[in-house]
Design a protein around this nucleic acid. Structure first.
Lengths: 179, 179
DNA sequence: AGTGATTATCTCATTGCTGAGATATGAATC
DNA sequence: GATTCATATCTCAGCAATGAGATAATCACT
């Protein structure tokens, strides 16, 4: 994985322009939201770090993260309209079509008509799809559990609560709130 | 934005196969790691929700998230080796070259030789780059602050601490630890 | 039943990004 | 000073994913 190179850090000399007096002095406003920015940074890093574990586990089975998400959603929720699937897996509309197409080609998912609404289509697991997700899901759950194992049970509970609140508030503030 | 469609949910009839007796009954193992999985889910959702705010703000200035990340890193840290930049912005090696190329074309960043190591190159902000990031950073910080405003200061502090612990532990467990 | 607004899915051009390998330099050993 | 291994960046082919627009069906009203 070329993204991560845990290398030793030989102290190198900074280039001329870096040493030019105060060349990159950050503005005072930086202090103002430092705490909020820090939260955003650690949120991103934690997500990336855990996500790396998740994807590494999923990739072993020849699936992408999004594909796995679809199989998992169908496994636990039963047949879903493509739109519901889209919202659940956090992917674009085109992406949903693309992913379901591919899973269909792999024989893991099928489309089914919705009796009430002929615009809509259900995605459903095939027998092979159900068998696959049933087989790999436990390992995946264990991999995630290891990935978040750096927190104690109590800490995980607290983190879950905070993140749920944070996520909900951020999602709702999408429109644009008054300052 | 077609990714998100906050639509009302008319109750539709599930297709036949969904009602077939226990067709998608989840396995018992699902309970075992439910708490850890939940944490991963809310972490992903919170990250996506806040990230949406971040990207919406950055896009207003014609920059991608990764481009902004580079400018921001150079602004606060001064000139950085491309490798350091890569680690900081969480992008692949090829991506770093690509992004710095593009920022160079935009006249915001320049490459500079490293006097000690002729393999290495520094990325440095140009005058225009520094002016740009200095102009847009405060707004961006404010946007992030709004996005995470669903938590109180005390909650943010707690969340930051937990996420830092979580991220570090997950990153270190990359190799593969004994069960 | 007809009209228009809304909703669901699909199409497709574009693109950002990855990751393996190439190239070039540096450090260490003989 | 040659050789070998490690490191830093760049090249490039390939692909997943986006998002605007097309198509089709439904709903709300008259």
């Amino acid at each position: 994985m070329s993204t991560r190179t845990p290398s030793p850090k030989p102290a190198r000399q900074a280039p001329r322009s870096a040493r030019a007096a105060g060349a990159h002095a950050p503005a005072a406003v930086d202090e103002r939201y430092a705490e909020e920015l820090k939260l955003w940074v650690v949120l991103s890093r934690a997500h990336a770090a855990v996500g790396r574990h998740s994807e590494a586990d999923i990739a072993r089975h020849g699936l992408s993260s999004a594909e796995f998400g679809i199989l998992e959603a169908l496994y636990h929720k039963g047949p879903l309209l493509l739109g519901d699937l889209q919202r659940r897996v956090l992917v674009s509309s085109g992406g949903t079509t693309f992913l379901v197409d591919r899973l269909e080609k792999k024989g893991l998912v099928a489309r089914e008509a919705c009796p009430n609404d002929r615009r809509a289509r259900y995605a459903v697991l095939t027998g092979a799809g159900r068998a696959l997700i049933r087989r790999i899901f436990p390992d995946h759950a264990a991999a995630i559990a290891r990935a978040v194992g750096g927190l104690t049970r109590e800490e995980r509970r607290a983190a879950t609560k905070l993140l749920r609140t944070l996520g909900r508030a951020a999602a709702e503030a999408d429109g644009g709130e008054p300052g």
